[in-house]
Computed example of a mutant assay.
Amino acid sequence: MGPAERSVLVAWSTFTTTFTATRAVTHWIRDGHGPASGGITVGGRHFHHYNIGIALLSAVGAVALRGQERHRRHPVTAMAYGAANALIVDELMLLLDLKDVYWAKDGRTSVDAAVGLIGVGGIYLAAAPFWHRAARELASTAVHRPA
């Protein structure tokens, strides 16, 4: 497995882990447990975790644009990318509707989107070596085919 495949695997794994942990923590907080019962507040206003995701994506973008090559495919960069996307996707409907539907039926779309991304990511990662070999095989037979 090369650096690109490793980065994708780390990002996808971190997305899955972060999304699962975020769902668990938000349910735990909503049920009135823990010191942050009701979530994080800043200046008396609820602080949504998609803000953390946006900040992380900004940092990853800065690394992509100005970072050294060894930092671009570093596991920490891939982890930040995966975690950032999970935090944003978890509250996707809030961003799309601009109203807090996190616990409403409409908020289920965010969960469905994340589960879909996790599934598609897993299928891609599981099948990528096969498809890459198949594409190389097709390309080599097309090049060597007599006219």
Rank of each mutant, 00 (worst) to 15 (best):
H132I: 13
S110F: 12
V111A: 04
K99Q: 09
L92Y: 12
Y124C: 11
V111I: 12
A86M: 05
Y102T: 02
L117E: 02
T109I: 13
R136Q: 12
R136G: 08
R136H: 11
M93L: 12
A86Q: 04
D106N: 11
D112P: 02
G122Q: 06
G82R: 00
G121W: 09
I118H: 04
A128G: 01
G116T: 09
D106M: 11
N85F: 15
A126F: 15
M93V: 10
G116R: 07
D97N: 05
G82M: 02
W103D: 06
L96W: 11
L138E: 07
A142W: 13
L95W: 10
E137T: 12
V89H: 05
L87F: 15
G107D: 06
A127C: 13
Y102R: 05
G122I: 07
A142T: 09
A127S: 11
V115N: 03
F130C: 07
E91L: 13
V89G: 07
D97L: 13
L125T: 01
R133Y: 07
V143Q: 09
Y81E: 04
N85Q: 15
A113Q: 06
G116N: 05
K99T: 04
L87A: 06
R136V: 05
S140R: 14
K99N: 02
R136E: 13
D97Q: 12
K105Q: 06
W131Y: 14
R136N: 11
G121I: 10
L95H: 07
T141G: 03
V111N: 02
R108H: 07
A128E: 03
W131R: 09
A128K: 00
H132L: 14
A142N: 08
D97A: 10
L96P: 01
V111M: 11
A139V: 13
R136A: 14
G82I: 01
D112F: 08
L125Q: 01
A134W: 08
F130T: 07
Y102E: 00
